[in-house]
């Protein structure tokens, strides 16, 4: 009986550590580690529309 209790403790502690380990691995940046080096210095690219631009239909609709 004492032997089974010990095994149960070991079992649950192993599972607990495994789950902690999985979370730790998930947050580890493997992608960045194995990513190919890029030569260009990266700026964050923001897409902003020009508010002064005038849009139109794609077909020939000439106003002028």
């Amino acid at each position: 009986m004492a032997q089974t209790k010990m095994e149960r403790k070991k079992f649950f502690s192993t599972i607990g550590f495994s789950i902690l380990g999985l979370f730790a691995l998930k947050s580890f940046p493997f992608g960045k580690l194995f990513a190919r080096n890029s030569n260009t210095k990266k700026n964050k690219i923001t897409v902003k529309i020009n508010p002064d631009a005038v849009s139109r239909k794609s077909t020939g609709v000439q106003n002028g």
């Binding site: 923001t46 529309i49 631009a53 005038v54």
Partner: peptide
Amino acid sequence: LQPVISPLYD
């Protein structure tokens, strides 16, 4: 010519 997007970079 009209810009349809603000400059992507500096």
